[in-house]
Write a protein that binds this DNA or RNA. Sequence first.
RNA 1: GCGCCGCUAGCUCAACUGGUAGAGCAACUGACUCUUAAUCAGUAGGUUCGGGGUUCAAGUCCCUGGCGGCGUACCA
Length: 506
Amino acid sequence: MNPPADGAELPAEGSAAFQRLVEARLEKMRELGRAVELYPYSYERTHTSEQLRAAEPELTAAGAVVRVPGRIMTKRGAGKTLFAPIQDEWGRIQAYFKLDTLGEERFQRITRLIDIGDWIGVEGTLFRTRTGELTIQVTDFTFLAKAVRPLPEKYHDLSLELKSRRRHLDLVMNQESRERFKKRSAILAEVRAFFGDEEFLEVETPVLQPLYGGATARPFTTHHNALDTRLYLRIADELYLKRLIVGGLERVFEIAKDFRNEGMDRTHNPEFTMLECYAAWWDYHGMLDLTERLLRRLARRFGNDGVLTYGGHDLDFERPFARLRFMDALAERTGVDLMTLDDAGVAAIARRHGIEPRKGMGRDKILDALFGDLVEPTLVQPTFVMDHPKELSPLAKAHRRAPGLVERFELFCAGFEVANSFSELNDPFEQRRRFEAQKTLAEAGDEEAQQLDEEFLQAMELGMPPTGGMGMGIDRLVMLLVDTNNIRDVLLFPAMRPERSGGEGP
RNA sequence: GCGCCGCUAGCUCAACUGGUAGAGCAACUGACUCUUAAUCAGUAGGUUCGGGGUUCAAGUCCCUGGCGGCGUACCA
């Protein structure tokens, strides 16, 4: 038998009132500890709450004794009986405790010494109450673990902050939250299965990198003690994955965290999960087909016959996705063929649409801003936007026919970007020129400028096959599939400012 | 970054123009042998985010710091 936990206490914290709530629980735990093991090592479960519901007819007919562990969510005493829903990962099953069946000591134990929030295993047979609820008639029960802290209030939702900061509380209190994160896991599994079927090899590349590249973003920096050298947390996998293509691995993909030292809001977290894939011998058309197949498969599995409801819109992934050329979309919105205009002309059009070009914004950046304002919000149904201006895409191959453009597409759904893809630049001389240009920007103080990666260039100089590449923000994909507009809903532990007591004052 | 709003019991929220800080849930005591937001009777529970100021008097007004929400800008 365990020591009776007489010394158990929590560090002083919170108000005296809170201390008393905890103390009441500790006191009951001490008393309970004199009779039972407080922290047993395991429990033999026969069924989950879900399995009980599925197997009810057989179990009832056989009068089978089941053993189900779970957390006590409420206690409803009714004289010499007690009803208590027991919650496990899949849901709840009601347990019925009766003085007559359990005897005085065990009945007192459940009614008086065991708290809401505690874990117990109940053993008994199934029956239906008068009101029709499936219930376990408890013949015995086992104490499994103590909740020394009280559970939150039961019929109002937690604030988003508490849900995010204390995800464990959210998961205890909200079945729907548990379902959402299980769905995220299923989505990831489905994506991996898809790439397996498409004969892509899943690989892992470094998170800690001596140089960062593959995207324009500010990195996190860290330091390696033994090497006494600065390292960066990756902002993209791109350059390493392309080196694998050079090496002869023809189809690779990676699902991994990227880190970007930038603002956070409803759609941005400093660390986020990115899918990148590369296929030798493909151009962006091949990637486009792949992307469409992937999204359709996900929409069939997680939506309704290939249709996803998002923000009140029905998004149809079953039909071939719309395709739209970047410049055509802009021309349609502005009434002007912007290809024919010079920088000043483009800037003038932007001003006419309420966009004031910032200092240092090149023509292509202004086009991008215009696109973001005028076109993106209108792209509700899945739409491929194709053939972007060159300056925006330093790693993409020039368009084979249209001068000034690159072979690139982005997939938009519900007004936000889901995927981004190029015919990958594989000309090492052109790539070196573009890096040099970035280096100049960096020296001028542009923190987002990409660094010249000699290792990568040397790899490309060894010869990189024609290659298609695609990147997809997994968190946004999950947001789309679970119908939420807040990234915190799909990250178990989103980045939060550390909690601190108030400042010291002036 | 910037702007607006918020922070009161463990949780969700009240408290008028400055005038004794309240309710529900949770907790505690009691009643009830099919309850289910159980019910009924009672008890206890507060650093009103921190610091400073104005005032006879501050949850409320002012200054300042912290944290959050929403909007906005950049990034997936």
